[in-house]
Amino acid sequence: MNKAPTPRFWLVLAFIAIYFVWGTTYLANLFALKDIPPFIISALRYLMASLLLAVLALSKNQHFPQGKEIRDLSISGVLMLVGGSGLVVVAEQYITSGSAAVVVATEPLWFVLLDYPRWKLYFRDKKIIAGLLIGFVGIVLFARFSPVSTSQEGQSADPLLGTVIVLAGAVLWVIGTLFASRRIKPGSYSLWHTTIQLGAAGLFSAFIAWVNGEWNSFDWQAVGPQAWGGLAFLILFGSLIAYLAFAWLVTVQPPAIVSTHTYINPLIAVLIGWLVAGEQVAGLQLIALLVVLTGVVLTQFSKIRIER
């Protein structure tokens, strides 16, 4: 029997989740950082999401991964969620949420550079290359036209340090994603896969927070409503909805295609920052927006499929 094609309806919903929902998590990070240290944010976020997802997986009676698969899922979860998303939270102590999102948008180029086994697959499709390059040019323009912002409460403005931290996180996210896409077989995905990734990332984040002394200085009673609200948003929307969509997408679509969410996320991050936090938006950023969208559309029009 031929394998049934992936329903386009679910593909569209999943891409909407990683394009738009993830773009709002950068501002949620800033709210959580008001009263909660960075790695405690990651620990609470991932552990709570893992517990909630485990309940859902149990209710569906899905097959639990075994042996090497658990190990591979744990490794990929730590790389992507602690090394990737976790470092973004750390970086937002030094740069704005929009700036962090713009730097994360370099991920598609890292995918192409680091995904050596698929170089022939990527480079033979002109739409993939054109889309990635145009999208990256749009991001550069977007950053260039962005107004200079002062640091927010709880930030120590250090653009260079923040940028380096986010770049390191972007590379680790790509490495973890590629690792997962090669170890998880198409069609084998279950809710337990994401549950294990989140759980491993939560435990590792809690360990780093302990090493850094974050738990010793953390005062639960001092956490305000905005910080709790930011954390709750990260758990429900960032981890349960958007990350679940991402974890499924990388098993049915090429990683470089899935990574185009990093072109839309900074636009959403800046827009939400403007609406909610009153951050300025330059008029020339609209031009960059059109360039970015052009790159995304070209990439999505590609006809390539995963080769395993």
Rank of each mutant, 00 (worst) to 15 (best):
A91W: 04
G295N: 04
G23H: 04
L234C: 01
S239A: 15
F136A: 07
I306K: 14
W173N: 12
Q93I: 03
L47R: 01
L289V: 15
S151I: 06
P147Q: 03
L109Y: 01
I139L: 12
F246C: 04
A130N: 07
K185Q: 15
G202Y: 03
P255K: 01
G229T: 01
A277D: 05
L293A: 08
L234H: 01
I139E: 06
T195A: 13
A17R: 02
V258C: 03
K3E: 15
H193T: 10
A288L: 01
Q300R: 15
S181A: 15
D72K: 03
L275R: 04
V166G: 07
L275C: 05
Y189T: 14
M1L: 13
L53Y: 00
S259Q: 04
L109I: 14
V297I: 06
L284M: 11
T251H: 03
I36K: 00
R71G: 14
L172R: 06
W210Q: 14
S188V: 10
E69A: 14
R8S: 14
V270Y: 04
V102G: 03
Q285D: 09
G154W: 00
F31A: 00
V78S: 04
I41D: 00
V281T: 14
R144G: 08
Q221G: 15
L289I: 12
L191W: 12
T106R: 05
L290N: 05
Y116E: 08
V164N: 08
F237G: 01
A49Q: 07
S42Q: 05
N265W: 05
G23Y: 01
V102L: 09
L167R: 01
F39K: 02
D125W: 04
T106C: 11
I165N: 07
F237Q: 02
W210G: 14
F204H: 05
H63L: 15
H63F: 14
I268C: 01
Y189Q: 13
I304G: 00
I257E: 04
P159D: 04
Q280L: 12
T163P: 12
I257R: 03
W173H: 14
A277K: 00
G187D: 04
V104F: 10
P5G: 13
W22T: 09
L53N: 05
S181C: 06
L56Y: 14
A100G: 13
K60L: 13
L290R: 09
L47H: 02
I95Q: 00
I18W: 07
